[in-house]
Design a protein around this nucleic acid. Structure first.
Lengths: 232, 232
DNA sequence: GATTATGGATAGTGAGACTCTCCGCTATCC
DNA sequence: GGATAGCGGAGAGTCTCACTATCCATAATC
């Protein structure tokens, strides 16, 4: 496993040793070694029994790992899954999206109960209502049902009323994502875009939503003059 | 600290011992004890040196903790911060939103560099362009800058082109959130709604976005007949 | 009156993400 | 050609997090 698709470098490309790779990526040598041991990063090419060289593919991969870890909040094992899927040329692109998406949210099982059954029903109705061509029991559907059930259990079932407002906002975002991804040509780029878009796009929207909260809150409750509030 | 605002029970209300609280909430007795020790849950009212009773406020609080933990993905220490803010009647509501929001995203610092400065600039321009009344250096603004910088570093700076699409989607979502929150009357309810809305709303949008991805992908690449795909 | 549950305290666990140390070897500078 | 810094590889150690287990003396329940 591993080791495919990472370095499309020929032979004349600039290749470096681990210290320089560390400096360029901002990841400590010890951590790079650790990632290699864990199979997240392919080992460098040995030039002698204890000397290896790393190329720009390693650097890129390393930055991807850090982005998924720090910004996307994925676990290393989730990142491993995602990277293995990226590197497997046999995987269809929509499957990559599936793996990336599945590993984002924790929501494991979301313990069963009547709320969960109701929530599943509600998800099915939503999909019907909006004409989305998705199985209600798909991972994303289950995740949504889990959230709805949790809202109900926490005594905030009323929040589910916003489902359609949220869905209306999610549609154009998804279209924009697909459109962005569709502009890639090479499979490798495309597939990485899917992952980055899914994971970091989430963080991006999240930050924007909070900015919009602060703005909306300032408009609703704040002064009329252009005063600003750093609250969120 | 703690212990205020949780049980608005009078005296005639149904109060139970820890075993029953555990059964109702689905949280083990050992874990409930642990939460009490950690200050996340106020202790039960002692009826004798080693006997205490818990009311519906405890049950509600417990379910809130589990929702924030399991669905929202907050850490216990973040949950502690949030709960303390909820329980402090002196905290203005927008500050609660700030605390809830700040603790969602990890993004600590997002190591500095030219990308981060550029990203901050880009955030400021976005805010200007959209007329959002928010400080660019607010926590949410910094989070966004961190995401943009990470995208650039990962070699996917092109994704930043979607910023305005995302912002356009975030606006109505934020309005819907505020509108929902605004319908609450009691401070306690209001403040809890803010937290739940911020944290679980994020999970809800995330699931919807993924559902919309699957749908959009099916439309773009899938068959014309109503075939469905459970891929994401 | 035996069994089970309870409150409170201390200690232990297992996963996750590193970080440290050691080894014998290699590259590099003077 | 010798000192010194860096290297690859492996194992063990560390720190945080979210629990979980154990113990004890007392209380509730059958």
């Amino acid at each position: 496993m591993m080791g495919c698709g990472v370095g499309k470098s020929g032979k004349g490309e600039r290749s470096v040793r681990i210290g320089e790779l560390s400096r360029r990526s901002g990841v400590s040598v010890a951590t790079i070694k650790f990632y290699v041991r864990e199979g997240l990063l392919p080992p460098g090419e040995l030039t002698s029994p204890n000397q290896a060289s790393y190329d720009s593919g390693h650097e890129r991969r390393l930055k991807l790992i850090r982005a998924l870890l720090d910004v996307g909040g994925l676990s290393l094992s989730a990142i491993g899954d995602v990277l293995r899927t990226i590197d497997d040329p046999a995987q269809p692109v929509h499957h990559v999206l599936g793996v990336a998406a599945k590993r984002i949210t924790a929501i494991e099982g979301s313990e069963p109960g009547p709320e969960l059954d109701d929530a599943r029903e509600e998800v099915a109705e939503l999909l019907e209502r909006r004409g989305w061509r998705v199985e209600a029991r798909s991972p994303a559907g289950e995740a949504l049902a889990g959230v709805l059930a949790a809202l109900r259990r926490a005594g905030h079932g009323g929040f589910c009323e916003l489902l359609d407002d949220y869905a209306s906002a999610a549609e154009p975002v998804a279209r924009a994502d697909l459109d962005y991804v569709g502009r890639r040509v090479a499979r490798e780029d495309l597939v990485e875009s899917v992952v980055v878009g899914t994971v970091l796009g989430e963080a991006m929207f999240s930050a924007l939503r909070r900015l919009a909260h602060v703005d909306a809150s300032a408009r609703a409750y704040g002064g009329e003059q252009g005063e600003r509030d750093g609250g969120g």
